[in-house]
C-alpha cells in the first residue's frame, strides 16, 4: 500500500562555532510495504534525525524523502504519518480518548468517524476500559500503549516509531513488542522503527537497515528470513539471523573506534 523512499539524503547540523556537522551522509533506502522496517545503528548516529526528516519536522540539505502510496496517487493529498515517541508524550490533562481525538482533529479526520476509530484502536492496544482515565494514573507501559494507539488512530500510510521501548522495563517492553508486531501484521501497517537494540531489530523488522556511526550512511540492508508471527527468540534460525545483524553492527563500531 505504502512505503518510504529516501534518496541521497544529506543533512548538516550547525555547531556552536559556526561550522557544520555532517549528520546524514547520502542515505538511500526503501522500506517494505506491509511491514516493519528497522533503522538499526549505535546511539547518536542520526537515526532519530532521519525519522524527523521523513516526517517533515526537519528539512534536508540535499536529496529527498518520499512516501509512495497508491492511495495517495489517487487523491493527491499529503501522506499521513503516525508518530510514536520514545516518551509517550501524552497530554496528561486529557483523558486517554481525548489524546486520540487530539490527533484525529489535527489530521482533519471527520468527527463522525472519531467514536468508532477511538474504540477500535484502544481495543487493539487493550485499553478500551481506560478511555476515561487520565494518563498519569496509568503505568508506563500503558501510557506507551496510548501513544501507539494515537499513532495508529489516524490510520497513517506509515507509522514512525522512535525507540518506543527503550524506556520500559524488560518484561513490559517484550510484551509491547509482541503486541505491536501482531497489530501491525493484522492491520498490514507499513512502519519504520528506530532502534539501537539488535535483538529488537531482529524480532520486529521485516527489513533491517543498518546505519554507521555519525555521519550516518547505510552499510547493510537485511531482509528477515522469518515471517513476523513466527519469530521465536529461542529458535536457532532467529538466533542465527540476530548474529548476522550483530556482526554487521560490531564491525562498524570497531571501525569507528580505530
Amino acid at each position: 500500500m505504502a512505503y518510504v523512499r529516501v534518496e541521497k539524503a544529506v543533512k548538516y547540523f550547525p555547531r556552536e562555532d559556526g561550522t557544520d556537522m555532517l549528520v546524514l551522509d547520502t542515505v538511500s533506502f526503501e522500506t517494505k510495504e506491509y511491514g516493519i522496517t528497522c533503522l538499526l545503528g549505535p546511539s547518536g548516529c542520526g537515526k532519530s534525525t532521519l525519522l524527523n526528516v521523513i516526517s517533515g519536522l526537519e528539512p534536508l540539505e540535499r536529496g529527498r524523502t518520499e512516501v509512495v502510496s497508491n492511495h495517495q496517487e489517487a487523491e493527491k493529498e499529503e501522506p499521513r504519518l503516525g508518530y510514536v515517541f520514545q516518551d509517550p508524550r501524552l497530554l496528561n490533562w486529557k483523558h486517554v480518548e481525548d489524546n486520540l481525538t487530539f490527533a484525529l482533529r489535527g489530521m482533519g479526520i471527520p468527527k463522525t468517524e472519531w467514536e468508532e476509530r477511538v474504540h477500535k484502536y484502544l481495543s487493539l492496544v487493550g485499553l478500551v476500559e481506560f478511555r476515561k482515565q487520565y494518563p498519569l494514573y496509568l503505568s508506563g507501559g500503558m501510557r506507551q500503549r496510548v501513544g501507539l494507539a494515537r499513532g495508529l488512530v489516524i490510520e497513517p500510510e506509515v507509522l514512525l516509531m522512535d525507540e518506543p521501548y527503550s524506556k520500559l522495563d524488560h518484561l513490559t517492553a517484550r510484551n509491547l513488542r509482541e503486541d505491536t508486531l501482531e497489530i501491525c501484521a493484522r492491520l498490514k501497517q507499513t512502519a519504520l522503527l528506530v532502534t539501537h537494540d539488535v535483538e529488537e531489530a531482529a524480532y520486529m523488522g521485516d527489513r533491517i537497515v543498518i546505519l554507521s556511526p555519525r555521519p550516518a550512511h547505510i552499510t547493510d540492508i537485511f531482509d528477515n528470513p522469518l515471517p513476523p508471527l513466527e519469530r521465536d527468540m529461542d529458535d536457532s534460525r532467529f538466533i542465527q539471523f540476530k548474529k548476522k545483524l550483530l556482526q554487521s553492527v560490531l564491525k562498524l563500531i570497531k571501525k569507528a573506534e580505530v
Binding site: 516526517s55 519536522l57 504519518l81 508518530y83 515517541f85 516518551d87 508524550r89 497530554l91 490533562w93 486529557k94 487530539f102 490527533a103 482533529r105 489535527g106 489530521m107 482533519g108 494515537r150 489516524i154
Partner: peptide
C-alpha cells in the same frame, strides 16, 4: 517535546495554544 508532538500530528495553532500550551500554564 509536546510541541513537537503536536506538530507531528498537524495540530492547528489554536489547538496548540488551547490543548498543549495553556494547560501547562495552569
Amino acid at each position: 517535546d509536546l510541541i513537537d508532538m503536536s506538530r507531528a500530528f498537524h495540530a492547528s495553532p489554536w489547538s496548540k495554544v488551547v490543548d498543549v500550551i495553556l494547560p501547562q500554564l495552569v
